[in-house]
Amino acid sequence: MTETIAKTEISFTVNGRPRTVTVEPRKTLADTLREDCGLTGTHVGCEHGVCGACTVLVDGKAVRSCLMFGAQADGAEIRTVEGLAEGEALAPLQEAFIRNHALQCGFCTPGFLMLITGALDENPDIRDEELTEILSSNLCRCTGYRNIIRAAIETAETLRRSRGAA
């Protein structure tokens, strides 16, 4: 175990911006984003893939970034919580979280935002029950979830309406 293993250079885009970093193979994608890209909005809550605080989108799919190594993301397109708002303008989901008091300490919030974003991107016509089932993927200790569910369902409706209007 004492032999040093060479770091590898990887390139990916995060929130549309290309990045090249050099990391140890053992570094998880979560730590790579936090430490090597300075994107600390992705939080690490358990490191064993259960709490979901580290959820990000990799090539459009909501995944646990603690269960992927940074090296595996070479060539991938990644979205994190920092990429949701466009400048000052919050995404509808972020606004719905604020409106519905769907966060308290805010530590789990980025993971929930990315989980819901991934689910709505994948299936904009998702049924409320399916969305609620997907929300059970992540843990929150402050809110008792009901306001998160409300914010998610409300956003799904908003997005459906705006698609209908367009």
Partner: peptide, 12 residues
């Protein structure tokens, strides 16, 4: 498959 872990786990 709906019973396998959770949605993000099923993605990978």
């Amino acid at each position: 498959a709906e019973n396998i872990a959770h949605y993000p786990i099923r993605q990978r």
